[in-house]
Design a protein around this nucleic acid. Structure first.
Lengths: 250, 250
DNA sequence: ACTAACTCTTTACGGCGTAAGGAGAATGCT
DNA sequence: AGCATTCTCCTTACGCCGTAAAGAGTTAGT
């Protein structure tokens, strides 16, 4: 995967220098392909995203997509940067904590709309236009608080990691539910009795105690689709706040 | 995917009731298949794990694996529970904070040894023997600190989410590096100049400032293979500690 | 009018998970 | 002992996948 080609595609700079094309006009655009691919992935998941499935609703053959995009991997890159454009602006935020809160919630919202996103958010930045803007926004929000650059990066990394983990857990739950046709609660209803047979109370006392408290069945208790995202987020922000305070004091 | 069948397989209870088998003896065991599959996944990644690739080193055809395991999905479940057995015991830990620290580091260590694990750690628990023991351990460590059950669950969820996110970021970096043949540093050397062309300093001031500080090139600065895992972990634990203190005070 | 450049097509290859059905081996019953 | 049953493991086959190769058809420059 050629980095130069990938970057050019992300910034849509590919066909800028060459205006007069010899052959027939292109009937599609990269944007249209990317948007179609996003719709397919939203509906069926990233695993079910195939070149053939993207080409069909566009009325072309799979191979014609290769005129616009070098391959599947690069298409996915473009999809990712496109949906990162849905992140909210942090400019109006009141203080760094609120900005980080919005950053994390924005990431979570994207993940909920597009469950295929979390596994793709890699540490190796692709730096398309939207990812660039997002980085600039969050680093801007962190600029005044007195952390060294190294720790600013680590803080963003921490937030991204947390959101990614939480989002993926929620996405998996939804995916499993859709595939098995069972909701989270129904699944526990089915396996609950089975578990109680295999898991003995005296071998696993702490787990049994929590299990019997019934908290596993409560929605939003820390597991399941909405898995205590806000609770965790506030703990993470508290941890960052303490670091900021310690820096200021010491 | 039948939950009962899956659970029976995880606890290896499948052939317990039926002792006298009519046909020829089985030449393989579920354990041997699972261990071989883990080796394949460790070497080539989960995407490259195919029934044919697992069968080959065992000297059987792909289809004979279906005598032992209902399908690929269930095999992966077994692989996951198997490697969760590598998690360290938390019994000797001195206090809940140290226990959680070990829990998180243990998870991270597993993820590093088996980079295919993080995407699989789902909120829908499979509850094989090792996952069960792990849950019991961490809930035991949290039992005395005064948090309600709901928040104990949320705390474990928070840690799992953080570890999962961080581990996946690290695994992706490694995977990308292996596939492209470029180390993290080499990749930045290649794309750096390109990025400076497309990303203008006045449109992205905060990002440019951090970029020019050179901190992106430092190893372990918050990105890259070792991406500030410890920094983030301490922030997360600080956040949990504050919650515990608030609970105790209020 | 001719040619070069370009888009889009059809075909093909080697991979995948696994359904179907058949060959051969070990047991239980008579 | 001999037969039926039951089980393991095999080969074959189907419909998916990404994309390489090569050809058909369209447009622009000369």
């Amino acid at each position: 995967m050629d980095p130069a080609r990938t970057l050019a595609l992300l910034w849509r700079a590919e066909h800028e220098p060459v205006r007069p094309a010899r052959g027939p006009r292109q009937g599609l655009t990269v944007d249209r392909i990317v948007r179609t691919a996003i719709a397919v992935a939203d509906a069926d998941g990233l695993a079910a995203l195939s070149m053939r499935k993207v080409a069909e609703p566009l009325g072309v053959s799979a191979m014609s997509l290769y005129t616009y995009v070098p391959g599947r991997a690069e298409l996915v890159n473009c999809m990712l940067d496109e949906v990162l454009g849905e992140a909210p602006s942090l400019e109006a935020a009141d203080g760094w904590r609120q900005a980080l809160e919005r950053y994390a919630r924005g990431g979570m919202a994207i993940a909920r709309r597009h469950p295929w996103v979390p596994p793709l958010v890699s540490s190796r930045m692709l730096m398309g236009p939207n990812e660039t803007a997002r980085w600039d926004g969050v680093l801007g929000a962190l600029s005044g608080v007195g952390l060294p650059e190294r720790e600013m990066l680590a803080v963003v990394h921490l937030l991204d990691g947390y959101v990614r983990g939480a989002a993926q857990q929620s996405a998996d739950a939804e995916h499993d539910a859709r595939r098995s046709g069972l909701s989270y609660d129904e699944w526990y209803e089915q396996t609950g009795p089975l578990l109680e047979k295999t898991i003995s109370a005296d071998r696993y006392p702490a787990l049994t105690r929590v299990w019997r408290s019934g908290v596993f069945e409560e929605p939003g208790a820390g597991l399941g689709p909405d898995g205590g995202f806000e609770f965790g987020l506030q703990r993470v922000l508290d941890g960052i706040e303490r670091r900021v305070a310690d820096r200021f004091a010491g």
